[in-house]
Design a protein around this nucleic acid. Structure first.
Length: 551
DNA sequence: CTAGGGTTAG
Protein backbone atom coordinates (compact mmCIF):
# COMPACT_ATOMS: atom_id res chain seq x y z
CA UNK A 1 0.00 0.00 0.00
CA UNK A 2 2.93 2.29 0.63
CA UNK A 3 3.67 2.03 -3.05
CA UNK A 4 0.12 2.55 -4.16
CA UNK A 5 0.10 5.91 -2.42
CA UNK A 6 3.34 7.06 -3.98
CA UNK A 7 3.25 9.70 -6.63
CA UNK A 8 4.62 7.96 -9.64
CA UNK A 9 4.84 10.45 -12.44
CA UNK A 10 8.39 10.81 -13.61
CA UNK A 11 10.18 8.23 -15.67
CA UNK A 12 12.89 7.63 -13.08
CA UNK A 13 10.32 7.10 -10.35
CA UNK A 14 8.48 4.73 -12.59
CA UNK A 15 11.59 2.66 -13.15
CA UNK A 16 12.26 2.68 -9.45
CA UNK A 17 8.79 1.40 -8.55
CA UNK A 18 8.96 -1.28 -11.17
CA UNK A 19 12.36 -2.46 -10.04
CA UNK A 20 11.30 -2.42 -6.41
CA UNK A 21 8.23 -4.43 -7.32
CA UNK A 22 10.16 -6.97 -9.32
CA UNK A 23 12.78 -7.30 -6.61
CA UNK A 24 10.06 -7.86 -4.07
CA UNK A 25 8.98 -10.81 -6.09
CA UNK A 26 12.23 -12.08 -7.51
CA UNK A 27 14.48 -11.43 -4.58
CA UNK A 28 14.66 -12.62 -1.05
CA UNK A 29 11.52 -10.74 -0.15
CA UNK A 30 9.46 -13.28 -1.99
CA UNK A 31 6.76 -14.62 0.21
CA UNK A 32 6.63 -11.68 2.58
CA UNK A 33 3.82 -10.10 0.64
CA UNK A 34 0.60 -11.79 -0.31
CA UNK A 35 0.48 -12.36 -4.04
CA UNK A 36 -2.79 -10.44 -4.22
CA UNK A 37 -1.13 -7.28 -2.95
CA UNK A 38 1.83 -7.83 -5.26
CA UNK A 39 -0.59 -8.08 -8.12
CA UNK A 40 -2.26 -4.91 -6.92
CA UNK A 41 1.03 -3.02 -6.94
CA UNK A 42 1.87 -4.50 -10.30
CA UNK A 43 -1.33 -3.31 -11.97
CA UNK A 44 -0.79 0.18 -10.57
CA UNK A 45 2.73 0.34 -11.89
CA UNK A 46 1.41 -0.98 -15.18
CA UNK A 47 -1.07 1.91 -15.31
CA UNK A 48 1.72 4.40 -14.83
CA UNK A 49 3.81 2.72 -17.49
CA UNK A 50 0.94 2.99 -19.94
CA UNK A 51 0.39 6.66 -19.13
CA UNK A 52 4.03 7.47 -19.73
CA UNK A 53 4.18 5.51 -22.98
CA UNK A 54 6.99 3.35 -21.68
CA UNK A 55 5.05 0.21 -22.46
CA UNK A 56 6.80 -0.07 -25.81
CA UNK A 57 10.23 -0.21 -24.16
CA UNK A 58 11.26 -3.88 -24.40
CA UNK A 59 13.25 -3.73 -21.16
CA UNK A 60 10.40 -2.21 -19.15
CA UNK A 61 7.88 -4.53 -20.75
CA UNK A 62 10.03 -7.52 -19.90
CA UNK A 63 10.31 -6.54 -16.23
CA UNK A 64 6.57 -6.08 -16.11
CA UNK A 65 5.93 -9.44 -17.74
CA UNK A 66 8.21 -11.18 -15.25
CA UNK A 67 6.35 -9.67 -12.33
CA UNK A 68 2.97 -10.67 -13.74
CA UNK A 69 4.22 -14.21 -14.35
CA UNK A 70 5.58 -14.49 -10.83
CA UNK A 71 2.16 -13.42 -9.53
CA UNK A 72 0.67 -16.27 -11.51
CA UNK A 73 -0.99 -13.87 -13.96
CA UNK A 74 0.34 -15.27 -17.24
CA UNK A 75 -2.61 -13.82 -19.12
CA UNK A 76 -1.65 -10.29 -18.03
CA UNK A 77 1.92 -10.91 -19.11
CA UNK A 78 0.61 -12.09 -22.48
CA UNK A 79 -1.40 -8.90 -22.78
CA UNK A 80 1.72 -6.75 -22.25
CA UNK A 81 3.57 -9.02 -24.70
CA UNK A 82 0.90 -8.81 -27.41
CA UNK A 83 0.78 -5.01 -27.22
CA UNK A 84 4.53 -4.82 -27.67
CA UNK A 85 5.16 -3.90 -31.32
CA UNK A 86 8.90 -4.60 -31.41
CA UNK A 87 9.82 -7.66 -29.39
CA UNK A 88 13.39 -8.65 -28.57
CA UNK A 89 14.67 -12.12 -27.73
CA UNK A 90 14.19 -11.44 -24.00
CA UNK A 91 10.47 -10.75 -24.48
CA UNK A 92 9.97 -13.90 -26.52
CA UNK A 93 11.91 -15.98 -24.03
CA UNK A 94 10.13 -14.55 -21.02
CA UNK A 95 6.73 -15.27 -22.53
CA UNK A 96 7.69 -18.83 -23.45
CA UNK A 97 9.25 -19.33 -20.00
CA UNK A 98 6.08 -18.02 -18.36
CA UNK A 99 3.98 -20.63 -20.10
CA UNK A 100 6.59 -23.27 -19.26
CA UNK A 101 6.46 -22.40 -15.56
CA UNK A 102 2.70 -22.74 -15.58
CA UNK A 103 2.53 -26.03 -17.44
CA UNK A 104 1.06 -24.71 -20.67
CA UNK A 105 3.04 -26.34 -23.47
CA UNK A 106 0.56 -25.54 -26.26
CA UNK A 107 0.68 -21.80 -25.54
CA UNK A 108 4.47 -21.87 -25.23
CA UNK A 109 4.70 -23.56 -28.62
CA UNK A 110 2.33 -21.05 -30.16
CA UNK A 111 4.58 -18.17 -29.05
CA UNK A 112 7.70 -20.07 -30.12
CA UNK A 113 6.29 -20.67 -33.62
CA UNK A 114 5.19 -17.05 -33.85
CA UNK A 115 8.71 -16.01 -32.94
CA UNK A 116 10.19 -18.08 -35.75
CA UNK A 117 7.63 -16.84 -38.26
CA UNK A 118 8.47 -13.25 -37.41
CA UNK A 119 12.15 -13.96 -37.91
CA UNK A 120 13.13 -14.00 -34.25
CA UNK A 121 16.29 -15.99 -33.47
CA UNK A 122 15.96 -18.27 -30.44
CA UNK A 123 19.12 -18.40 -28.34
CA UNK A 124 20.17 -21.03 -25.80
CA UNK A 125 17.95 -19.56 -23.09
CA UNK A 126 14.95 -19.61 -25.41
CA UNK A 127 15.60 -23.30 -26.05
CA UNK A 128 15.90 -24.00 -22.33
CA UNK A 129 12.51 -22.38 -21.81
CA UNK A 130 10.69 -24.07 -24.65
CA UNK A 131 12.17 -27.45 -23.75
CA UNK A 132 11.00 -27.00 -20.19
CA UNK A 133 7.49 -26.36 -21.53
CA UNK A 134 7.62 -29.55 -23.60
CA UNK A 135 8.87 -31.72 -20.74
CA UNK A 136 5.52 -33.50 -20.36
CA UNK A 137 3.74 -36.31 -22.24
CA UNK A 138 1.75 -34.01 -24.54
CA UNK A 139 4.90 -32.04 -25.32
CA UNK A 140 6.79 -34.88 -26.97
CA UNK A 141 5.72 -34.19 -30.56
CA UNK A 142 6.78 -30.54 -30.29
CA UNK A 143 9.90 -31.43 -28.35
CA UNK A 144 11.10 -33.58 -31.24
CA UNK A 145 10.72 -30.67 -33.66
CA UNK A 146 12.63 -28.40 -31.34
CA UNK A 147 15.34 -31.01 -31.09
CA UNK A 148 15.81 -30.68 -34.86
CA UNK A 149 15.93 -26.89 -34.64
CA UNK A 150 18.57 -27.10 -31.94
CA UNK A 151 20.74 -29.45 -33.99
CA UNK A 152 20.55 -27.11 -36.98
CA UNK A 153 20.99 -24.00 -34.91
CA UNK A 154 24.43 -24.93 -33.64
CA UNK A 155 23.58 -25.74 -30.03
CA UNK A 156 24.85 -29.29 -30.28
CA UNK A 157 27.63 -28.75 -27.78
CA UNK A 158 25.76 -26.54 -25.33
CA UNK A 159 25.64 -28.58 -22.13
CA UNK A 160 22.57 -26.89 -20.57
CA UNK A 161 20.58 -27.13 -23.83
CA UNK A 162 21.50 -30.78 -24.35
CA UNK A 163 20.67 -31.48 -20.71
CA UNK A 164 17.30 -29.82 -21.17
CA UNK A 165 16.77 -32.10 -24.18
CA UNK A 166 17.54 -35.19 -22.09
CA UNK A 167 15.10 -33.90 -19.48
CA UNK A 168 12.41 -33.17 -22.06
CA UNK A 169 12.60 -36.70 -23.48
CA UNK A 170 12.64 -38.28 -20.02
CA UNK A 171 9.68 -36.28 -18.77
CA UNK A 172 7.65 -36.76 -21.94
CA UNK A 173 7.94 -40.51 -21.63
CA UNK A 174 10.58 -41.24 -24.24
CA UNK A 175 13.38 -42.48 -22.02
CA UNK A 176 15.13 -44.15 -24.97
CA UNK A 177 15.55 -40.84 -26.76
CA UNK A 178 16.73 -39.28 -23.52
CA UNK A 179 19.44 -41.90 -23.27
CA UNK A 180 20.37 -41.42 -26.92
CA UNK A 181 20.96 -37.69 -26.45
CA UNK A 182 22.77 -38.34 -23.17
CA UNK A 183 25.11 -40.92 -24.75
CA UNK A 184 25.98 -38.58 -27.60
CA UNK A 185 26.99 -35.70 -25.36
CA UNK A 186 30.73 -35.04 -25.49
CA UNK A 187 30.64 -33.02 -22.31
CA UNK A 188 28.40 -33.36 -19.27
CA UNK A 189 28.06 -31.90 -15.79
CA UNK A 190 26.45 -33.04 -12.55
CA UNK A 191 23.04 -31.76 -13.62
CA UNK A 192 23.21 -33.82 -16.83
CA UNK A 193 23.89 -36.95 -14.80
CA UNK A 194 21.14 -36.10 -12.33
CA UNK A 195 18.60 -35.64 -15.11
CA UNK A 196 19.49 -38.97 -16.72
CA UNK A 197 19.54 -40.84 -13.41
CA UNK A 198 16.26 -39.29 -12.29
CA UNK A 199 14.63 -40.09 -15.63
CA UNK A 200 15.67 -43.73 -15.45
CA UNK A 201 14.54 -44.01 -11.84
CA UNK A 202 11.15 -42.51 -12.65
CA UNK A 203 10.65 -44.99 -15.47
CA UNK A 204 11.32 -47.90 -13.16
CA UNK A 205 14.84 -48.61 -14.38
CA UNK A 206 16.34 -48.64 -10.92
CA UNK A 207 19.19 -50.92 -11.90
CA UNK A 208 20.27 -48.71 -14.82
CA UNK A 209 19.95 -45.59 -12.69
CA UNK A 210 22.19 -47.18 -10.12
CA UNK A 211 24.86 -48.22 -12.61
CA UNK A 212 24.94 -44.64 -14.00
CA UNK A 213 25.29 -43.45 -10.42
CA UNK A 214 28.44 -45.57 -10.14
CA UNK A 215 29.66 -44.57 -13.59
CA UNK A 216 29.39 -40.84 -12.90
CA UNK A 217 31.69 -41.29 -9.92
CA UNK A 218 34.17 -43.31 -11.96
CA UNK A 219 34.29 -40.35 -14.34
CA UNK A 220 35.12 -38.03 -11.46
CA UNK A 221 31.75 -36.37 -10.82
CA UNK A 222 30.68 -35.89 -7.22
CA UNK A 223 26.99 -36.68 -6.60
CA UNK A 224 25.09 -33.87 -4.88
CA UNK A 225 21.89 -34.06 -2.85
CA UNK A 226 19.81 -33.91 -6.03
CA UNK A 227 21.61 -37.00 -7.32
CA UNK A 228 20.58 -38.86 -4.20
CA UNK A 229 17.01 -37.54 -4.40
CA UNK A 230 16.78 -38.51 -8.07
CA UNK A 231 18.07 -42.02 -7.65
CA UNK A 232 15.87 -42.64 -4.65
CA UNK A 233 12.72 -41.66 -6.52
CA UNK A 234 9.89 -43.71 -5.20
CA UNK A 235 8.48 -45.45 -8.24
CA UNK A 236 11.81 -46.90 -9.27
CA UNK A 237 12.35 -48.49 -5.93
CA UNK A 238 8.94 -49.93 -5.25
CA UNK A 239 9.85 -53.27 -6.75
CA UNK A 240 10.81 -56.06 -4.43
CA UNK A 241 14.35 -56.63 -5.64
CA UNK A 242 15.32 -53.00 -5.19
CA UNK A 243 16.27 -53.18 -1.54
CA UNK A 244 19.84 -54.23 -2.27
CA UNK A 245 20.80 -51.22 -4.27
CA UNK A 246 18.80 -48.84 -2.08
CA UNK A 247 21.09 -49.95 0.76
CA UNK A 248 24.06 -49.40 -1.51
CA UNK A 249 22.93 -45.83 -2.32
CA UNK A 250 22.37 -45.30 1.38
CA UNK A 251 25.96 -46.36 2.15
CA UNK A 252 27.24 -43.90 -0.45
CA UNK A 253 25.09 -41.13 1.02
CA UNK A 254 26.47 -41.77 4.49
CA UNK A 255 30.04 -41.75 3.23
CA UNK A 256 29.47 -38.49 1.39
CA UNK A 257 27.89 -36.90 4.45
CA UNK A 258 24.37 -36.62 3.05
CA UNK A 259 22.93 -38.64 5.92
CA UNK A 260 22.34 -35.34 7.69
CA UNK A 261 20.44 -33.88 4.71
CA UNK A 262 16.76 -33.88 5.64
CA UNK A 263 15.51 -34.25 2.07
CA UNK A 264 17.80 -37.19 1.39
CA UNK A 265 16.70 -38.85 4.63
CA UNK A 266 13.05 -38.26 3.78
CA UNK A 267 13.59 -39.99 0.45
CA UNK A 268 15.36 -42.87 2.20
CA UNK A 269 12.49 -43.33 4.65
CA UNK A 270 10.05 -43.40 1.78
CA UNK A 271 12.06 -45.74 -0.40
CA UNK A 272 12.88 -48.20 2.36
CA UNK A 273 9.18 -48.37 3.20
CA UNK A 274 8.29 -48.89 -0.45
CA UNK A 275 10.74 -51.71 -0.83
CA UNK A 276 9.23 -53.39 2.19
CA UNK A 277 11.93 -52.74 4.75
CA UNK A 278 10.10 -50.72 7.35
CA UNK A 279 12.90 -51.48 9.83
CA UNK A 280 15.48 -49.65 7.72
CA UNK A 281 13.02 -46.80 7.25
CA UNK A 282 12.60 -46.55 10.99
CA UNK A 283 16.36 -46.54 11.54
CA UNK A 284 16.81 -43.60 9.18
CA UNK A 285 13.83 -41.77 10.66
CA UNK A 286 15.00 -42.21 14.23
CA UNK A 287 18.49 -41.04 13.34
CA UNK A 288 17.25 -37.75 11.91
CA UNK A 289 18.06 -34.56 13.81
CA UNK A 290 15.41 -32.47 12.09
CA UNK A 291 12.11 -33.72 10.77
CA UNK A 292 9.49 -31.88 8.76
CA UNK A 293 5.94 -32.85 7.89
CA UNK A 294 7.28 -34.88 4.93
CA UNK A 295 9.54 -36.96 7.20
CA UNK A 296 6.65 -37.76 9.52
CA UNK A 297 4.23 -38.47 6.69
CA UNK A 298 6.70 -40.76 4.96
CA UNK A 299 7.31 -42.75 8.15
CA UNK A 300 3.62 -42.89 9.05
CA UNK A 301 2.70 -43.97 5.53
CA UNK A 302 5.45 -46.57 5.51
CA UNK A 303 4.26 -48.09 8.76
CA UNK A 304 0.63 -48.01 7.66
CA UNK A 305 1.31 -49.75 4.38
CA UNK A 306 3.51 -52.38 5.98
CA UNK A 307 0.88 -53.62 8.37
CA UNK A 308 1.87 -51.51 11.38
CA UNK A 309 -1.28 -49.44 11.59
CA UNK A 310 -1.15 -49.04 15.34
CA UNK A 311 2.39 -47.80 15.33
CA UNK A 312 1.51 -45.43 12.48
CA UNK A 313 -1.26 -44.01 14.59
CA UNK A 314 0.89 -43.50 17.69
CA UNK A 315 3.46 -41.74 15.50
CA UNK A 316 0.65 -39.62 14.13
CA UNK A 317 -0.14 -38.54 17.70
CA UNK A 318 3.52 -38.03 18.50
CA UNK A 319 4.16 -35.74 15.54
CA UNK A 320 1.42 -33.47 16.81
CA UNK A 321 2.82 -33.50 20.34
CA UNK A 322 6.07 -32.33 18.80
CA UNK A 323 4.26 -29.47 17.13
CA UNK A 324 4.21 -30.71 13.53
CA UNK A 325 0.82 -30.25 11.90
CA UNK A 326 -0.37 -33.12 9.66
CA UNK A 327 -1.40 -32.15 6.15
CA UNK A 328 -3.68 -33.85 3.63
CA UNK A 329 -0.91 -36.22 2.59
CA UNK A 330 -0.36 -37.30 6.18
CA UNK A 331 -4.05 -38.15 6.48
CA UNK A 332 -4.17 -39.94 3.16
CA UNK A 333 -0.98 -41.86 4.05
CA UNK A 334 -2.21 -43.13 7.37
CA UNK A 335 -5.62 -43.97 5.93
CA UNK A 336 -4.22 -46.26 3.27
CA UNK A 337 -3.05 -48.71 5.91
CA UNK A 338 -3.45 -52.39 5.35
CA UNK A 339 -6.34 -53.87 7.27
CA UNK A 340 -5.60 -55.15 10.75
CA UNK A 341 -7.55 -56.09 13.83
CA UNK A 342 -8.57 -53.14 15.96
CA UNK A 343 -7.85 -50.64 13.20
CA UNK A 344 -11.35 -49.20 13.38
CA UNK A 345 -10.62 -47.59 16.75
CA UNK A 346 -7.76 -45.46 15.54
CA UNK A 347 -9.32 -44.80 12.14
CA UNK A 348 -12.19 -43.12 13.95
CA UNK A 349 -9.73 -41.03 15.92
CA UNK A 350 -7.87 -40.02 12.76
CA UNK A 351 -11.24 -39.04 11.30
CA UNK A 352 -11.85 -36.84 14.35
CA UNK A 353 -8.47 -35.18 14.00
CA UNK A 354 -9.20 -34.50 10.34
CA UNK A 355 -12.51 -32.92 11.22
CA UNK A 356 -10.89 -30.68 13.83
CA UNK A 357 -8.21 -29.69 11.35
CA UNK A 358 -10.91 -28.64 8.90
CA UNK A 359 -10.05 -31.49 6.52
CA UNK A 360 -13.15 -33.55 7.29
CA UNK A 361 -14.71 -32.84 3.94
CA UNK A 362 -11.54 -32.73 1.87
CA UNK A 363 -12.11 -34.85 -1.20
CA UNK A 364 -8.86 -36.82 -0.91
CA UNK A 365 -9.29 -37.41 2.81
CA UNK A 366 -12.88 -38.57 2.30
CA UNK A 367 -11.86 -41.00 -0.41
CA UNK A 368 -9.27 -42.46 1.94
CA UNK A 369 -11.81 -42.58 4.78
CA UNK A 370 -14.38 -44.48 2.72
CA UNK A 371 -11.68 -46.92 1.71
CA UNK A 372 -10.27 -47.34 5.21
CA UNK A 373 -13.60 -47.60 7.03
CA UNK A 374 -14.71 -50.31 4.62
CA UNK A 375 -11.41 -52.12 5.04
CA UNK A 376 -11.38 -51.96 8.80
CA UNK A 377 -14.84 -53.39 9.08
CA UNK A 378 -17.25 -50.50 9.44
CA UNK A 379 -19.22 -50.39 6.23
CA UNK A 380 -21.72 -48.06 7.95
CA UNK A 381 -19.10 -45.40 8.66
CA UNK A 382 -17.82 -45.77 5.11
CA UNK A 383 -21.33 -45.20 3.84
CA UNK A 384 -21.80 -42.18 6.12
CA UNK A 385 -18.71 -40.47 4.69
CA UNK A 386 -19.67 -41.54 1.18
CA UNK A 387 -23.16 -40.07 1.47
CA UNK A 388 -22.01 -36.70 2.69
CA UNK A 389 -19.49 -36.21 -0.10
CA UNK A 390 -20.53 -33.57 -2.59
CA UNK A 391 -18.09 -34.67 -5.30
CA UNK A 392 -17.20 -38.27 -6.06
CA UNK A 393 -14.87 -39.79 -8.60
CA UNK A 394 -14.33 -43.34 -9.76
CA UNK A 395 -12.07 -44.05 -6.74
CA UNK A 396 -14.83 -43.03 -4.35
CA UNK A 397 -17.33 -45.33 -6.02
CA UNK A 398 -14.84 -48.17 -6.23
CA UNK A 399 -14.01 -47.91 -2.54
CA UNK A 400 -17.70 -48.00 -1.60
CA UNK A 401 -18.70 -50.72 -4.05
CA UNK A 402 -15.66 -52.83 -3.17
CA UNK A 403 -16.38 -52.39 0.53
CA UNK A 404 -19.99 -53.49 0.13
CA UNK A 405 -18.90 -56.47 -1.94
CA UNK A 406 -16.46 -57.55 0.74
CA UNK A 407 -19.13 -57.23 3.40
CA UNK A 408 -21.42 -59.50 1.51
CA UNK A 409 -23.83 -56.74 0.53
CA UNK A 410 -24.01 -57.78 -3.10
CA UNK A 411 -27.45 -56.33 -3.70
CA UNK A 412 -26.44 -52.90 -2.39
CA UNK A 413 -23.16 -52.94 -4.28
CA UNK A 414 -25.01 -53.63 -7.46
CA UNK A 415 -27.53 -50.85 -6.99
CA UNK A 416 -24.66 -48.46 -6.25
CA UNK A 417 -23.01 -49.64 -9.44
CA UNK A 418 -26.15 -48.70 -11.37
CA UNK A 419 -26.37 -45.33 -9.62
CA UNK A 420 -22.73 -44.60 -10.39
CA UNK A 421 -23.45 -45.04 -14.07
CA UNK A 422 -26.62 -42.95 -13.90
CA UNK A 423 -24.51 -40.16 -12.43
CA UNK A 424 -22.20 -40.37 -15.40
CA UNK A 425 -19.12 -41.82 -13.73
CA UNK A 426 -17.36 -44.29 -16.03
CA UNK A 427 -16.47 -47.57 -14.29
CA UNK A 428 -12.88 -48.80 -14.64
CA UNK A 429 -11.31 -52.24 -14.25
CA UNK A 430 -11.37 -52.01 -10.45
CA UNK A 431 -15.11 -51.27 -10.51
CA UNK A 432 -15.79 -54.38 -12.58
CA UNK A 433 -13.54 -56.43 -10.36
CA UNK A 434 -15.40 -55.25 -7.25
CA UNK A 435 -18.85 -55.72 -8.67
CA UNK A 436 -17.94 -59.21 -9.77
CA UNK A 437 -16.80 -60.02 -6.25
CA UNK A 438 -20.14 -58.72 -5.04
CA UNK A 439 -21.85 -61.43 -7.05
CA UNK A 440 -20.24 -64.02 -4.80
CA UNK A 441 -22.64 -63.23 -2.00
CA UNK A 442 -25.67 -63.72 -4.20
CA UNK A 443 -24.33 -66.64 -6.16
CA UNK A 444 -26.22 -65.50 -9.22
CA UNK A 445 -24.74 -66.66 -12.49
CA UNK A 446 -27.05 -64.23 -14.30
CA UNK A 447 -25.30 -61.26 -12.70
CA UNK A 448 -21.86 -62.48 -13.58
CA UNK A 449 -22.90 -62.91 -17.20
CA UNK A 450 -24.49 -59.46 -17.28
CA UNK A 451 -21.42 -57.76 -15.75
CA UNK A 452 -19.23 -59.75 -18.14
CA UNK A 453 -21.24 -58.43 -21.08
CA UNK A 454 -20.86 -54.85 -19.85
CA UNK A 455 -17.14 -55.28 -19.25
CA UNK A 456 -16.76 -56.49 -22.82
CA UNK A 457 -18.68 -53.45 -24.00
CA UNK A 458 -16.38 -51.19 -21.98
CA UNK A 459 -13.35 -52.95 -23.43
CA UNK A 460 -12.16 -53.94 -19.97
CA UNK A 461 -12.52 -57.71 -20.24
CA UNK A 462 -8.90 -57.96 -21.39
CA UNK A 463 -7.71 -56.46 -18.10
CA UNK A 464 -6.10 -59.29 -16.18
CA UNK A 465 -7.75 -58.25 -12.90
CA UNK A 466 -11.21 -58.29 -14.47
CA UNK A 467 -10.45 -61.59 -16.19
CA UNK A 468 -9.30 -63.13 -12.90
CA UNK A 469 -12.50 -62.02 -11.19
CA UNK A 470 -14.56 -63.48 -14.03
CA UNK A 471 -12.79 -66.84 -13.91
CA UNK A 472 -13.16 -66.86 -10.14
CA UNK A 473 -16.84 -65.91 -10.20
CA UNK A 474 -17.81 -68.32 -12.95
CA UNK A 475 -16.22 -71.06 -10.87
CA UNK A 476 -17.97 -69.90 -7.74
CA UNK A 477 -21.36 -69.80 -9.39
CA UNK A 478 -20.74 -73.32 -10.63
CA UNK A 479 -20.32 -72.62 -14.32
CA UNK A 480 -16.97 -74.28 -14.85
CA UNK A 481 -17.41 -74.26 -18.63
CA UNK A 482 -17.80 -70.47 -18.72
CA UNK A 483 -14.78 -70.15 -16.47
CA UNK A 484 -12.69 -72.32 -18.77
CA UNK A 485 -13.89 -70.36 -21.81
CA UNK A 486 -12.83 -67.13 -20.13
CA UNK A 487 -9.52 -68.60 -19.02
CA UNK A 488 -8.64 -69.91 -22.47
CA UNK A 489 -9.49 -66.60 -24.10
CA UNK A 490 -7.35 -64.44 -21.82
CA UNK A 491 -4.46 -62.65 -23.52
CA UNK A 492 -2.61 -62.17 -20.27
CA UNK A 493 -2.53 -64.50 -17.29
CA UNK A 494 -0.81 -64.24 -13.94
CA UNK A 495 -0.42 -66.66 -11.05
CA UNK A 496 -3.83 -65.55 -9.71
CA UNK A 497 -5.50 -66.52 -13.00
CA UNK A 498 -3.99 -70.00 -12.91
CA UNK A 499 -4.77 -70.49 -9.25
CA UNK A 500 -8.38 -69.37 -9.72
CA UNK A 501 -8.89 -71.82 -12.57
CA UNK A 502 -7.12 -74.69 -10.82
CA UNK A 503 -9.01 -74.25 -7.57
CA UNK A 504 -12.27 -73.86 -9.50
CA UNK A 505 -11.64 -77.15 -11.26
CA UNK A 506 -10.58 -78.81 -8.03
CA UNK A 507 -13.71 -77.70 -6.24
CA UNK A 508 -15.89 -78.87 -9.08
CA UNK A 509 -14.51 -82.39 -9.07
CA UNK A 510 -12.36 -82.03 -12.15
CA UNK A 511 -9.21 -83.26 -10.45
CA UNK A 512 -7.50 -84.59 -13.54
CA UNK A 513 -7.96 -81.32 -15.43
CA UNK A 514 -6.84 -79.31 -12.41
CA UNK A 515 -3.68 -81.33 -12.15
CA UNK A 516 -2.77 -81.04 -15.81
CA UNK A 517 -3.29 -77.27 -15.59
CA UNK A 518 -1.07 -77.25 -12.52
CA UNK A 519 1.70 -78.86 -14.56
CA UNK A 520 1.06 -76.56 -17.50
CA UNK A 521 1.33 -73.40 -15.43
CA UNK A 522 4.80 -74.44 -14.32
CA UNK A 523 5.85 -75.30 -17.87
CA UNK A 524 4.85 -71.75 -18.78
CA UNK A 525 7.10 -70.39 -16.05
CA UNK A 526 4.58 -69.50 -13.35
CA UNK A 527 5.53 -70.33 -9.78
CA UNK A 528 2.63 -71.73 -7.74
CA UNK A 529 1.77 -69.95 -4.48
CA UNK A 530 0.43 -71.43 -1.24
CA UNK A 531 -3.18 -71.23 -2.44
CA UNK A 532 -2.29 -73.09 -5.62
CA UNK A 533 -0.77 -75.93 -3.62
CA UNK A 534 -3.71 -75.97 -1.21
CA UNK A 535 -6.16 -76.34 -4.10
CA UNK A 536 -4.22 -79.03 -5.85
CA UNK A 537 -3.63 -80.96 -2.63
CA UNK A 538 -7.37 -81.01 -2.05
CA UNK A 539 -7.68 -82.86 -5.32
CA UNK A 540 -4.99 -85.32 -4.33
CA UNK A 541 -6.67 -86.29 -1.10
CA UNK A 542 -9.76 -87.23 -3.04
CA UNK A 543 -8.14 -88.96 -5.99
CA UNK A 544 -5.21 -90.80 -4.54
CA UNK A 545 -1.59 -90.42 -3.62
CA UNK A 546 0.07 -90.80 -7.01
CA UNK A 547 -0.17 -87.11 -7.74
CA UNK A 548 1.07 -86.05 -4.35
CA UNK A 549 4.36 -87.76 -4.95
CA UNK A 550 4.77 -85.95 -8.23
CA UNK A 551 4.22 -82.61 -6.58
C1' DC B 1 20.25 -3.19 -17.65
C1' DT B 2 16.15 -7.99 -18.89
C1' DA B 3 15.11 -14.33 -20.07
C1' DG B 4 17.87 -19.50 -17.57
C1' DG B 5 18.92 -27.01 -17.61
C1' DG B 6 17.93 -31.19 -12.52
C1' DT B 7 15.12 -31.38 -6.53
C1' DT B 8 12.20 -35.68 -1.61
C1' DA B 9 5.85 -37.58 0.80
C1' DG B 10 0.82 -39.19 -2.08
Amino acid sequence: MWLAGMAVNSTSQLFKSLLVTSELIDGQNRGRLASSSLYDICTRVHDCILKSGMDQNPYVANKLMRVYIRCGKVQDARHVFDKLVKKNVFNWTTMIGGYAEHGRPADAIEVYNQMRQEGGRPNEVTYLSILKACACPVGLKWGKEIHAHISHGGFRSDVPVQTALVNMYAKSGSIKDARLVFDEMAERNVITWNVMIGGLAQHGFGQEAFSLFLQMQEEGFVPDSTTYLSILTATACSSAGALGWVKEVHRHAVKAGFDSDMRVCNALVHVYSKSGSVDDARLVFEGMLDRDVISWSAMIGGLAQNGCGHEAFSLFLKMQREGVIPNVTTYVSILTASASAGALEWVKQVHNHARKAGLGSDFRVCNALVHMYAKSGSIDDARLVFDQMSVRNVFTWNAMIGGLAQHGCGQEAFSLFLRMRREGVVPDAITYMSILNASASTGALGWVKEVHRQAVQAGLDSDVRVGNALVHMYCKTGSISDARLMFDGMVERDVITWTAMISGLAQNECGQEAFSLFLQMQREGFIPVATTYASILNVCTSTGLAMVEEI
